[in-house]
Design a protein around this nucleic acid. Structure first.
Lengths: 193, 193
DNA sequence: CTCTCTATGTAGCACTCGCTACATTTGTAG
DNA sequence: CTACAAATGTAGCGAGTGCTACATAGAGAG
């Protein structure tokens, strides 16, 4: 017999992949169990209840997201705000990141409705994204760097939101203007990295 | 007996209010009927099916949103991008608009998952918001005006998203930087309005 | 080999879901 | 008043939900 923990971990990976691909909506225990290739009975043997399954899967996806982000753009090369914005926007609209951004949208929507788990994840995602931007910005002053990082976070998330919601070209229209704006930003002397 | 259409309209208003307050998630026919003060049987007498109920309610809310937006900030006074951004951000985070923005988030999330109704509403909302911004921008060149309007749309939606998702102060941090950026934007000569 | 404990299957409970068949009331037209 | 159609109530169907009680299989310990 294979140990419970290992089976649990295997199931969790498949469930996380299923949630990433299909979102938070259609996630009944039976569907999740089918995605993991086990019975719903076993799912509740590995996990306490449905909330435990979802929380575990989402936490796993969150760590995957961190890894994907760091792999996509190393934090060694510091960039100007405008360049970093364009790079991040391209990244976020790409095939790899799109599913994560769609999930991020759903989590934010649930957080807005008062869901506790979503609120916790939302905080971590916002903090993580902001730190990711800050680590790649070529700005010396830490306070100023955090401010610009927050602005980039808002701009990229907003662009992704609009991109998901509409087939119109509003995102492209905004992207150029925002990138141009960011070239005129006050950054102070560049970091001596 | 009161005519079917009038009863239907009365029910629809209460249902729309309920959806605005409670979101797209907990909206079973029985809950919606209870919110309207009628039986679920009658709900399906007034509407073809659940999809018809939701579509009607959301379309109604969309028109309410347009009215609320126009009432909150008249389109007579043209503003500089930075000022309009700050005004819109304050508006969007206020008590009146917050429920609509939360609903807008949910619609965007569903649109990202391929929901047809959500996609249609998303397109209308994006178009409407962009036009709202454009009508209030003090920029003469129409193309440039649309570009800046799109940028404002993205910035405000992004700020709202981050605001909903996190209790951290990331939104405030970003707001100042974005407003400052927008003061340095190229707008061309002001409109002769 | 037996005993025991972990792992897994079967069946089902109580509930909610969207929706419908059928009966009944109630207003109105003749 | 009668006849009929519109409006409304009662009851329930079949499917899906999260979750659980119970039985069984199988591996390791003695």
């Amino acid at each position: 017999m294979v140990s419970k923990d290992i089976q649990r971990a295997r199931a969790l990976e498949k469930i996380a992949a299923h949630v990433l691909a299909n979102g938070l909506a259609k996630t009944s225990l039976r569907q999740l169990a089918a995605a993991a290739g086990i019975s719903d009975r076993m799912l509740l043997y590995y996990f306490k209840d449905k909330a435990d399954v979802m929380a575990s899967a989402l936490v796993l996806l969150l760590s995957e997201l961190q890894g994907t982000l760091n792999a996509a753009l190393p934090d060694t090369g510091k960039q100007a705000p405008s360049e970093l914005f364009s790079a991040a926007l391209e990244l976020v609209r790409g095939e790899t990141m799109r599913p994560y951004m769609a999930l991020w949208l759903e989590i934010a929507a649930q957080s807005a409705r008062g869901d506790g788990l979503a609120r916790m994840l939302g905080n971590q995602i916002v903090t993580g994204f902001q730190a990711w931007f800050a680590a790649r910005l070529d700005i010396a002053d830490p306070e100023r760097r955090d401010e610009v990082a927050a602005a980039l976070l808002v701009a990229v998330d907003g662009a992704s939101l609009v991109d998901f919601a509409s087939d119109a070209q509003a995102t492209d229209l905004a992207a150029g203007t925002l990138a141009a704006m960011l070239t005129r930003i006050e950054t102070g002397p560049p970091r001596s990295s």
